[in-house]
Design a protein around this nucleic acid. Structure first.
Length: 390
DNA sequence: GCTTATTCGCCACACAGGTG
DNA sequence: CACCTGTGTGGCGAATAAGC
């Protein structure tokens, strides 16, 4: 029986096996009159996005008139392997009314099928097997799969009647919306946190923060980082996971009491920093050498372990001081770490440190919780996709 | 004009060689 | 000798060039 494992009760009967070219039509429309000057790229996780947004630059050829002109709602296949998409990615244009794509991509539009059903279908892995059968031997040639276009349009898909298509599509649209809303919630929390970070620490040149907990007054005192922290060279690899999360937020490891902070002697930004000079902090006073799930690999020779020098300092407060700390090196300065201990920071009395530390910890914990929720929704979606399509 | 091969830039990582 | 840092490398994701 050609039926999905999981199905809405009201539906019966087998799904039809159809070839792709019976439900879609290839799009070869060229951008002759330069109708669009928006070069797109396919991102496996972000879908069809313009190149400026994705790469921060335009990587297309100078002459866009030879590019395909894609309209909103149309699909394109990137026959290039990418992480999680061993047979390439098929995405639908949603964010713009139109855009242009290199002719390397295979474009098409839905004609005889619910467009959004098809979109969700291509998010599953059910079409991979078909493509794998037509991909040239070795399956991969410098990242690009050798897939003849006419063969591509002959791949078989399993689809139900239209009203079942619609019902399934509505379910997944709803799930996507839920995930999107959850993401917005997280973004908002992060924005708020940023705002508090600015207000609850003194601005450059000042000795008091704009916003303070009640009962605390007076200037913060100047300390050197070396007063707060000592560092050691670790002696072994600590992390094996390569699941590096490329975000501009400093990775915060919420399990246990350890963190990774990024600093660099070249450019600011955690990505570079994590690769070159990551710093790991352990809270010596609450947990001892408690290794946790780091999100990316760190090399022992390029990082330092930091420990608080005394219990006169609040761990979470110091952590946030470090996160806020900006070090602008003189051009290609070497051995910046040797100066680490001399960097100046402002510190309030212990009770105030504690309050501030706890305040930010609460925010971070909440963000982590919301992030877990989103991960759960995504897992749930993945499971449904696997079972509700064939 | 379509298909296939090559190139390009980025980045993580290993490693060698320099230096206080 | 411990510890930096520069450099080489290979995989990846992308586009372009070459070939048919």
């Amino acid at each position: 029986m050609n039926v999905p494992k999981l199905r809405f009760k009201e539906f019966g009967g087998e799904w039809r096996s159809v070839s792709l070219d019976s439900i879609v039509e290839r799009v070869v429309r060229k951008n002759k009159q330069l109708e669009s000057k928006l070069p797109l790229t396919i991102s496996a996780d972000r879908g069809l996005v313009d190149q400026i947004t994705y790469f921060n630059k335009n990587v297309s050829g100078k002459d866009l008139s030879g590019y395909y002109l894609l309209k909103k709602g149309e699909f394109t296949y990137n026959k290039s392997y990418s992480n999680g998409y061993p047979w390439g990615a098929i995405k639908r244009l949603e964010n713009y009314n139109q855009g242009v794509l290199s002719t390397l991509y295979i474009c098409f539009k839905a004609t005889n099928i619910d467009e959004l059903f098809l979109k969700h279908y291509f998010e599953t892995t059910h079409w991979h097997k078909e493509v794998s059968m037509i991909a040239a031997e070795g399956a991969r040639n410098h990242g690009l799969l050798n897939i003849p276009v006419n063969e591509f349009f002959k791949i078989k898909l399993n689809i139900p009647e239209e009203w079942e298509q619609r019902k399934i599509r509505n379910l997944f649209e709803k799930i996507n919306k839920k995930i999107k809303l959850q993401q917005q919630k997280i973004d908002l929390l992060q924005e708020q946190k940023k705002g508090y970070m600015q207000k609850m620490f003194p601005k450059a040149g000042e000795t008091q923060p704009e916003m303070r907990f009640e009962g605390f007054t007076g200037e913060w005192e100047e300390r050197k980082l070396g007063d707060l922290l000592k560092y050691e060279q670790p002696t072994k690899y600590i992390v094996e996971s390569t699941n590096y999360n490329d975000s501009n937020e400093t990775p915060v490891l919420t399990a246990g009491k350890s963190f990774i902070l990024g600093y660099t002697n070249e450019i600011s930004g955690i990505k570079e920093a994590s690769a070159k000079n990551p710093i790991i902090i352990f809270d010596d006073f609450t947990t001892s050498s408690h290794y946790v799930d780091f999100s990316f690999k760190v090399k022992s020779s390029a990082m330092k372990l930091l420990y608080l020098t005394s219990s006169d300092y609040d761990f979470y407060f110091v952590f946030n001081v470090l996160k806020k700390f900006e070090y602008v090196p003189e051009n290609h300065e070497r051995q910046w770490i040797s100066k680490f201990a001399k960097f100046k920071v402002l510190v309030p009395v212990f009770n105030e440190q504690e309050k501030i530390g706890a305040f930010f910890k609460k925010i971070d914990d909440n963000i982590y919780l919301q992030q877990q929720k989103i991960d759960f929704y995504k897992e749930q979606k993945k499971g449904l996709m696997q079972q509700m399509f064939i």
